[in-house]
């Protein structure tokens, strides 16, 4: 038995589906962000697996940029969540409509 790239790709697909399911199930905006991070990590796994499979470093560079974009996204997203939860600590994702204007 040998670990082939297909194993990594299957794991990546499972993690992506898990993150997407969590994003749809949970109502707490913070936890929804964590699920987005899970999905980004799933994509990173498959990027690195393809990079190994095709012997191409470009996949690893792509992971680097995904990482930077994830950091930026978390910063902006969490500040929106802070602005929301300051008004009502029990807010769910539906209450984002309160931030209008």
């Amino acid at each position: 038995m040998e670990v082939t790239e297909a194993w990594y790709l299957i794991l990546s697909a499972m993690l992506f589906a898990l993150g997407a399911t969590g994003l749809m199930i949970r109502r707490n905006p913070l936890v929804m962000f964590m699920c987005v991070e899970l999905m980004l990590n799933a994509v990173n796994i498959s990027f690195v697996a393809f990079s190994k499979m095709y012997d191409d470093l470009a996949g690893q560079s792509a992971v680097f940029f995904v990482l930077v974009v994830a950091a930026a996204e978390v910063v902006v997203g969490l500040s929106i969540v802070v602005a929301l939860l300051r008004r009502r600590p029990t807010a769910t994702a539906d209450d984002l409509v309160e931030l209008r204007g």
Partner: peptide, 10 residues
Amino acid sequence: IVLGGGLGVI
């Protein structure tokens, strides 16, 4: 660990 952590998040 990856999948268990993911389940834990959800």
